[in-house]
């Protein structure tokens, strides 16, 4: 028995929508840059769930390969993002994003 035909594809759509919204809310809510990066990971994972659900629904493995690529890009993004964070901490003494407004004016 297929899990998607049991709970319906709309359950997965709802789950992904809720997770994505929580990620967006976290990006707007927090000032700590590390937690903002984690919320971006949450958003990527919401999309991953949806990719796998639709890949299983259509019996098409391309969706799962896409999730594999998304994971790889997320890993690269996190490595560079945390390096930038460390640099920012060294120069400014905090990872509060409100201290990074020198480019504002």
């Amino acid at each position: 028995m297929n899990i998607i035909s049991e709970v319906g594809i709309n359950s997965y759509l709802w789950l992904a929508a809720i997770l994505f919204s929580i990620g967006v809310m976290g990006v707007l809510f927090r000032r700590n840059a590390i937690i903002i990066l984690m919320c971006i990971e949450l958003m990527l994972n919401a999309v991953n769930i949806l990719f796998v659900a639709f890949s299983v629904m259509h019996n098409n493995p391309a969706g799962q390969i896409m999730v594999f690529f998304i994971m790889a890009v997320a890993a690269a993004e996190v490595a560079v993002g945390l390096a930038i964070l460390i640099l920012m901490y060294r120069n400014m003494g905090s990872v509060d994003i409100d201290t990074m407004k020198k480019l504002k004016w």
């Binding site: 028995m1 297929n2 998607i4 035909s5 319906g8 594809i9 709309n10 759509l13 890949s55 299983v56 629904m57 019996n59 493995p61 799962q64």
Partner: peptide, 16 residues
């Protein structure tokens, strides 16, 4: 309206 999408109950268990 997504709840009306028909889902094929046959699952290829070897796909993943």
């Amino acid at each position: 309206g997504a709840e009306n999408i028909p889902v094929n109950p046959m699952l290829d268990t070897q796909m993943g």
